[in-house]
Design a binder for these strands. Structure first.
Lengths: 238, 238
DNA sequence: CAGTGGTCTAGACCACGAC
DNA sequence: TCGTGGTCTAGACCACTGA
């Protein structure tokens, strides 16, 4: 996709690891060998290796080499910075999305704060449920700043809003603040979800930013307890 | 702590942001100005800025500059890669730790798999509760590979095992796989925790690795529902 | 000892935004 | 057009590992 040299090297090696061509627990070629093999400088190779390291593919060990890790990375079915559709596809899960609400509204003080906008701005409200094996297990309540997202349709919301934002509107989703808590179910949860008798629900709150650091979206993803799972790879930062 | 040039620049700028000397939503000096100010090359400045970006301090905008973000980063009271003590201190929370179990054992097949060790290895089991405002709200069940951690004492477990590993044993905690789910309470939970009537519990599972990619620890952190909160800063990886 | 990854430099060209 | 951050290069020295 991106045409960087280091990014394409990253993708190449990552693909080799995922396909098993590069075996787990074995050593990568040294940085010097890689720079020769890819016909590039060592610094560029290092950028690619750092990406692999950050994404949990390899571990670099000083004076020894880089070894391939075997951490299952692609199994975090929690919506967040990645669009729900992308995650579902990656995990190979089949979900059906139903749009329950889609309209423009004025933000209350809570939304004004979460989206850092004034009372005069307008926002889209989108309420969707995600259904799997006949059970509605996730309720997504999303709010988009209308200034950045002038038009939204039921079709877009049923497919992928992120694909629309990035593909059609040319907006770049860049980063997010994510918060996970467990809370008591609301009447809304009971209305829209098949709660299976649970009185609590996992709430994932997301404030999503564009690459110019503007807030574009606030979403509450409400997951049924037993269907929630979040997997992360984290490096120790000092 | 570390003597890198780019790391000390990172820490310097991060401190300026946290102290408010660099105001939120304002621009940093350009990379050229910074490299002159710090008397270093631009690539070194860029390494420092990338750290700031990865940690949620700034957002870099091409052809414009780097702006200071105002994402509250230091509020994730969930044990994980950072030691419980470090997190508690950062959040300014007072916890009291009680060691309930501390002994050496043979790993069952579950632990053999989680720690990737053979049945002949030995592991430390450490069970601790964390108490706040008179309530025992977190149960940590940790298993350390004895090969790497020969001696453990009640005093170490009450203080900080990580400080012992890194300070005394000179081991480098490097990365972890983390998984968050919600499960039904066990009798053990009911024995050790003040569950306040809840029938479910948040379980955070951690597989912790050293910098040579060896697994050293598997921990189950069991949090009372209403006291659990996980906050993350995530960049879109694409 | 040679090879490794970690750091650092002083250049270079590019695409893009603002003026 | 000028300044910005993004990419890339071809060196260099270091500390450490392993033979």
């Amino acid at each position: 996709m991106v045409t960087n040299k280091y990014d394409s090297i990253y993708q190449d090696i990552a693909a080799q690891i995922e396909s098993g061509k590069l075996k787990k627990h074995t050593k990568l070629p040294s940085e010097n060998e890689l720079s020769e093999a890819y016909g590039t400088s060592r610094e560029t190779i290092r950028k690619a290796l750092n990406l692999l390291s950050q994404h949990g593919y390899i571990q670099k060990i000083k004076a020894k080499g880089s070894i391939v890790l075997d951490i299952g990375r692609f199994d975090f079915p929690v919506s967040g910075l990645t669009s729900f559709k992308e995650v579902a596809e990656k995990v190979g899960q089949q979900f059906h999305t139903t749009v329950h609400e889609l309209y423009v509204m004025k933000p209350d003080s809570f939304l004004q704060n979460e989206l850092k906008i004034s009372a005069k701005e307008e926002v889209w409200k989108v309420a969707r449920t995600r259904e799997k094996d006949g059970e509605r297990i996730i309720l997504d309540k999303s709010f988009f700043v209308k200034k950045y997202v002038p038009g939204l349709t039921k079709e877009i919301c049923e497919d992928s809003i992120y694909a629309y934002l990035e593909g059609d509107l040319n907006l770049n989703i860049s980063f997010a603040r994510k918060e996970i808590t467990v809370e008591e179910c609301t009447d809304e949860d009971r209305t829209y979800l098949d709660l299976n008798g649970y009185n609590h629900i996992v709430v994932v709150r997301n404030n999503v930013f564009l690459d110019n650091a503007s807030l574009i979206e606030y979403t509450e993803s409400r997951h049924r307890l037993d269907k929630f799972r979040f997997v992360d790879f984290a490096r120790r930062s000092r």
